[in-house]
Simulated assay, not measured.
Amino acid sequence: MFHNKRSFNSPYHQRGAALAVAVFIIVVMSLIGTAMVRILGDATSATVGEVLGARAQAAARNGAEILLVDLYPLNSANADDTLCPARTASLPTTVVVQTNFSIDGLANCNTTVFCDQAELTAPYSGIHFRIIAQGSCSAGDMTYSKEIMLEASDGVY
């Protein structure tokens, strides 16, 4: 039989194999690290979007409530119908409240409230108000907005 005098078990003949394994491990770990950074970045953006969206919703609601307090003052039998103009379009176009918030929780948020009114017809009596409140909040180059629509009436049914 042939007998090879060279031994491949010696460290001299195995050099370079550890380098290939080390390069492979470095590449795999770099890919995993890059993927983790992207996943964390996406999760952070989603969280910021949810928080700013909730704040925009609160700003819209706050603006609508400001108008409702003015529209239906305490200890008054009737609504203050001078705040909202008569209905002329399919959606309200007159801005009746515009607020920029600086309080904690709504900093960098603003609200714009549109309102119109229509006289109720028989068999009902009174005035029907349609209110659209738009809230928006910004952080950096991102702006999130929400819109709510309310209808209120001082009518008798």
Rank of each mutant, 00 (worst) to 15 (best):
A59E: 09
G49N: 12
N108Y: 08
T94Q: 04
H3F: 13
Y124P: 00
A118Y: 05
S136Y: 09
T121K: 13
E119L: 10
F8Q: 11
Q117K: 13
V156I: 11
D80L: 09
T82S: 10
A89G: 04
V113H: 03
R130M: 08
A17L: 14
V113T: 08
D81Q: 08
Y157W: 10
P92Q: 06
T47G: 14
I127P: 03
Q57G: 09
A89D: 14
T88M: 03
V37R: 10
S125W: 05
T143R: 14
I66Q: 10
E119Y: 01
G41N: 12
A17C: 03
V97L: 06
T82V: 06
L68A: 04
T44M: 12
E151K: 06
A86C: 00
A18T: 12
M1S: 13
N110W: 00
F101G: 09
L31H: 04
T47C: 05
Q14T: 07
Q14N: 08
E65R: 02
T112A: 05
N78E: 11
F2Y: 14
M1L: 12
T47A: 15
L40I: 10
S145F: 11
G135F: 09
E65S: 08
I66G: 00
A22K: 06
S153K: 01
A79W: 04
S76I: 01
S10L: 13
A133E: 08
Q57F: 11
V156M: 12
R38Q: 14
P85M: 01
T88P: 02
A46M: 14
L74H: 10
I148M: 05
I25M: 14
V27K: 05
C115G: 01
G16V: 05
P92T: 05
A77Y: 02
Y157K: 06
A133S: 15
I66P: 00
P73D: 04
L19N: 05
A59S: 13
P11M: 03
Y124T: 06
D80Q: 10
A79C: 06
F114A: 01
L91P: 03
A139G: 14
Y157I: 07
S45L: 15
Y124M: 11
S153T: 15
T99A: 07
N62Q: 12
A56C: 08
I25L: 15
A64T: 07
G16C: 10
E119H: 02
I127G: 01
L68G: 00
N78G: 06
A56P: 08
L83C: 01
L71E: 02
L120D: 07
G155M: 05
G155E: 03
A54G: 15
I26V: 15
G63P: 07
V27W: 08
A86I: 01
D116M: 00
V51Q: 12
G33C: 11
V96L: 00
G155T: 04
E50G: 15
T82K: 09
G16E: 04
I131Y: 08
F114I: 00
T112M: 06
I127V: 13
S7K: 14
P11K: 02
R15H: 01
C115V: 01
L120H: 02
T143E: 07
G155Q: 05
R38F: 14
Y144R: 15
N62H: 11
Q14V: 05
L91C: 00
N78C: 00
E50H: 13
L52C: 09
P123R: 12
C109T: 03
V28W: 09
A43E: 11
A107D: 15
D116P: 00
A17T: 09
A86M: 05
A56R: 10
V96W: 00
P92K: 01
C109M: 07
I131R: 08
I132K: 02
P85I: 00
